[in-house]
């Protein structure tokens, strides 16, 4: 079905745009915390678009379900990882890290 192929290509390109935005954000943003912002948000949407594109292209609902699981897993781990990184960046700032010492 040609409309599915067109949809796949569109989603892939949109996903690429978001991933690219994340990488450029890594270069453009001034501060370490802002860069984590850019990476987390842009890359997650990019991943969502590309996963959707692959799921549509595969034409099989079982494979699509598998891809949704993979997407959810990566979503959870990457948001947790961004939290871990953000916390690590602020470790030296006593107020934020809540170090009572």
């Amino acid at each position: 079905m040609i409309i599915l192929d067109v949809l796949t290509v569109i989603l892939l390109v949109v996903g690429l745009v978001f991933f690219f935005a994340g990488s450029i954000g890594l270069l453009r943003f001034p501060d370490l915390m802002c860069r984590v912002h850019a990476l987390t948000k842009a890359d997650n949407i990019g991943l969502a678009c590309i996963s959707l594109a692959v799921a549509i292209y595969s034409n099989d609902w079982l494979i699509g379900l598998k891809i949704i699981f993979v997407w959810l897993f990566i979503l959870a781990t990457s948001s947790l990882m961004s939290f871990i990184i953000a916390r690590r960046i602020n470790m030296s700032n006593k107020i934020i890290s809540g170090d009572s010492r």
Binding site: H37, T40, K41, L75, S79, S82, F83, A86, I89, I96
Partner: peptide, 19 residues
């Protein structure tokens, strides 16, 4: 905290108890 990191414009830096 994880959802905040994905919402527009916000990123969690620290979670201490209820803060």
């Amino acid at each position: 905290s994880c959802c905040i990191s994905l919402l527009p414009g916000t990123l969690t830096a620290s979670l201490i108890g209820k803060t």
